[in-house]
Structure formats: C-alpha cells, structure tokens
Computed example of a mutant assay.
Amino acid sequence: MKTTRIDWPEHYIRGRGFRWLGGDEKKLIVEHAPAHEGGRALDVGCGRGEMSVYLASLGYEVDAVDLADAALARARTDHPDATVRWLRLDIERDDPAPLGSERYDLVVFRLSVAFLHDRTRVLHALGRRLREGSTVLVITPLVAHTSAEKRHIALDEDEISALTCGWTSVQRIAVGDLAALVLRGPCADTVATERSVPATGYAVAGALAVVTDEHGRVLLGWSKRGMWELPGGKIEGAEPLDGAGVRELAEETGLHATGATVVTILTDAAQGVPRLTAVIRIAGFTGTLTTAEPHRFTRWEWHDPHALGCLGPVFTPGAQALNAVWPGVIAGLPPVHSYPTANVGPRGAAGCRSTASPPTAASPPGPQAQA
C-alpha cells in the first residue's frame, strides 16, 4: 500500500521498518564521495538517520532533513551522540533557507527520490548548491526488483532517464538489487531535439500549451521519445489554435484550462516538412495533474523557468515556445520565424521576426495557475 506524504509521521510513530544501511552502500560512499576536511553533506529524506550518522563518521559536517517530525525524533533518540544537524524540511515544497548559503560536497537521496513528484527540479536545485565537482548520489530500488504493491517506492528505466537528464556526468552502479546514480555537473545544456520518426504530410500544424503553477513553474513531460515536451499536439480539423492547446492539455495531463491565449506562431521545418506551431499561454487551470497518456509520457513535472537552459534534450518546438514566452532562457536554438499576436509584449506590439537567437522583446509571463 502506498505511503503518502501525510502518512509518514504515523509510519515512524508506529516504528515500521526500513531497509538498513548496507555495507555495499557504505563502500559506495567511500569510493565515490570520500569526505575531506571541512566537507559538508546533505542527507535528503534522512528517516531514522543511519546514512546521516555514517556520513558524520567519515568526517562530513551533516545536515539531515526529513518532512516528518516523528522521523527526526526517532533519529535523535537512536543517535543521541551524533554530530548531525537534524532539520524538519519538506525539500520539495518548503523554503530551503534553513540550509543556509554554504555549499555542499555531497547530497544523498537514499530510498527517498521516488517519493518526490518534481524530482528533476529538486535535484537540479540542490545540484546548484554543490561545490564545483561535487556529487549528488541517488540510491533507489528498481521496479524490476520490486513487487507490484510496492511500485511507488521504485523507479523504472524511463524514470531514471528523466532523473539523470541534464547532468554533465552520470554514473550508474549496481548495489545489490538497488541502483546508485552518481551525478555531477547539474547543468548540461538544453539541446533542441527532433523526434526520430519524421513528420508526414505536406505540412504539420500543432499547438503547444505553456502552463505555470502558483509558483510560476512551467509544466513539462518526459516523453517515451526520451525528451522533455510541452503539452500539445497536432491541430484537428478546423479547430481554433487556442482550442487545440486546451484540448491537448486536458487529454495529456488531466488539467482543464480556464483561459488560453495565442501568444505567437512559430514556423520552421522538420526533416524537410514545413511546421507551424501555435504557442498557447494558459491563464489558469482546474483539475489534478496526472499522466493521462502513459503510453506517450512517463511523467509530468513542474520546472523553474530560470533552469530551462539545463534540461538536456527538449523537443525543438517546445524549446522554441519556451524561449518565446521567456526570451533568452535557452541558448543556441535553431532558426525559427516568430509571428507574435497583437497582445504580446509590454507595448502590445505585433509583427514578424526571423531569429536564430532569443527574441529581444520580453513577453509577459502571463497569469499564474489557479488550482
């Protein structure tokens, strides 16, 4: 049965068991992230604190965070003499200010990353807190070695691909029936990527939805094609451009737009086929985010706009659409012709431009989502 965020305190209060820290995991730390004088480590989802105490024994100054007060209480009880700073913090939702501004040499997610929804965003945000050349270490169960009823605690190969995308260095190590991911360099350049199957027909017309949550984060899906994509797809028949974006958003994510505006139309070509892409800014939405088309997408995540240049492969029209809404966030994109609508830009200027680099006139970010 799935353990939810609300269930965690009860889980620890009842003293339910967790997997003990094994010798292979300890060896992994020593070999791939040895402590040095003054080294700092962050243990995310520390639970009862085994990993945190082991890191401290190696010489790390350790911050150990967990969202459950009961977990931290148990850690303090089990390790009363540990030189660890125990912090109650939901790393996905809370202000990270309690972590301070000093950088870390190691960030560890042991058996915890599967419980994060916006895994990519969280890992990249913590990666930016690392000293140069330092490490994020993820230790996770694999679906292939996990029973169906415990699917929620494990990652499959598509989820691992999404999690490791955008890192300069990725090393995967088998630790018994677990997988260890050694990640370094949290900002691999975003690369505009085309789908391997060429478009068919004389031309292709589509619509992409740019939707943000209450924090201004934009929704992207990791597709079965191995790239990040915006919600969207081909226009059906004579439907309006904004209607196509609204329809695709609902079909793919379960979210229902409460307002939509065509902010620009982009034209380019893919494998020699002309392509027209309408960029639809969603004003707000209702509903619950879900992976409504699991045959096409592995998962949907909310991403910080300022980190859009560090994602790895992004479907080319999606990358161009993001750059149309937030000019300059992604560098080195291929040429595209952009036709903003009359209500785009601070002065409402309309017009046509052909560009191989981000537009210079900033488009307004638009209203944030209302869930």
Rank of each mutant, 00 (worst) to 15 (best):
A125I: 02
S363W: 00
V263L: 09
P294D: 05
E25Q: 08
A70K: 05
T190S: 15
F285R: 11
W222N: 12
W326I: 09
S196I: 09
R119Y: 06
E149V: 06
D69T: 11
E10V: 05
D43Q: 03
E236Q: 14
V210W: 01
M1T: 14
R128A: 07
A369F: 04
A369R: 13
L255D: 01
A179H: 01
R121G: 11
A35Y: 05
P274K: 03
V136P: 00
T120A: 14
T140G: 07
T258Y: 00
A209M: 02
P294F: 01
T4R: 08
E25G: 00
A321Q: 03
P359C: 03
A148V: 13
L183N: 06
A68R: 00
R281Q: 12
A278C: 09
P34D: 11
G245R: 02
G233R: 02
L142G: 01
A71M: 07
K26L: 11
H303F: 13
P80N: 10
Y339R: 02
L241H: 10
L99I: 01
A114M: 09
A56V: 02
M51E: 02
A356H: 10
P274R: 07
Q370M: 07
A41W: 04
R85C: 10
T286V: 06
L89P: 00
E229Q: 15
A361W: 04
T77H: 15
T190I: 08
I153K: 08
T120N: 09
L123M: 14
T288A: 13
P231D: 10
G243F: 10
G243W: 02
I235C: 11
H36C: 12
K2G: 00
Q320S: 06
L72S: 08
D43H: 01
W300L: 01
W326D: 13
I330Q: 04
G216R: 05
P359Q: 11
R195T: 11
R172T: 14
A278S: 15
T135N: 03
V122N: 10
D156A: 03
V211Y: 05
E31V: 06
P305T: 10
H256M: 08
